[in-house]
């Protein structure tokens, strides 16, 4: 990767890992969408999706960079020594290993993404939290059960898949002796 891209990716990661998701959603919807009048972000769902994507992308970029560093130039050279083209080496050797190393991290990132999406109701996106609040508000209801149900739904959405990815990835990493790179 060229140096200048490296810097761009670095800055992107640092910025979007540093901003709380809620601030990002409000900023993009109210600030960029309604304030500056950028048409796509006047739409609450689009604004929320974009805000979630920006933050998640920063995390995923970090996860994949660590994974690629763990594999290193050596595997590439070994592949090229057999006569594989650069593209073949990337798809047959680098990518499969990158995914295995990245999987446990991607599992937690997926959970985080689902959980962060719960902020979207604040700008009116009709998600689980939105409907929970609606149910509680009209007619006024004891909030214990609706919030409990919402929590249960989030667990249902995150726990099985995240746990499966984590277990599969960790087992595979151990079996194959793969590790993330430092730095």
């Amino acid at each position: 990767m060229g140096k200048q891209y490296q810097i761009i990716v670095d800055v992107y990661e640092k910025i979007f890992r540093g901003i709380p998701e809620l601030v990002l959603i409000l900023f993009i919807y109210f600030g960029v969408g309604l304030g500056l009048g950028f048409p796509p972000f006047k739409h609450a769902f689009t604004a929320a999706t974009f805000a979630l994507g920006l933050r998640s992308g920063a995390h995923q970029s970090q996860i994949f960079r660590g994974a690629i560093r763990g594999i290193g130039e050596e595997q590439m050279m070994a592949a090229r020594s057999l006569g594989l083209s650069r593209l073949q080496a990337i798809f047959r050797v680098m990518v499969p290993q990158t995914f295995i190393i990245a999987t446990p991290g991607l599992g937690s990132e997926y959970s985080l993404l689902v959980k962060d999406s719960s902020y979207a109701f604040i700008i009116g996106v009709p998600d689980i939290m939105f409907w929970t609040n609606r149910v509680i508000a009209t007619p006024p209801l004891d909030p214990v059960f609706p919030y409990f149900a919402a929590a249960f739904l989030y667990i249902l959405l995150t726990f099985p898949l995240a746990t499966y990815l984590d277990m599969w990835g960790s087992r595979k990493k151990k079996q194959l002796g793969l590790q993330e790179g430092e730095g």
Partner: peptide, 16 residues
């Protein structure tokens, strides 16, 4: 390169 076999000091098999 396909016609030149290469064996590396640190082996470098494909882990996966």
């Amino acid at each position: 390169r396909a016609k030149i076999g290469f064996v590396f000091q640190h082996i470098w098999l494909f882990h996966h």
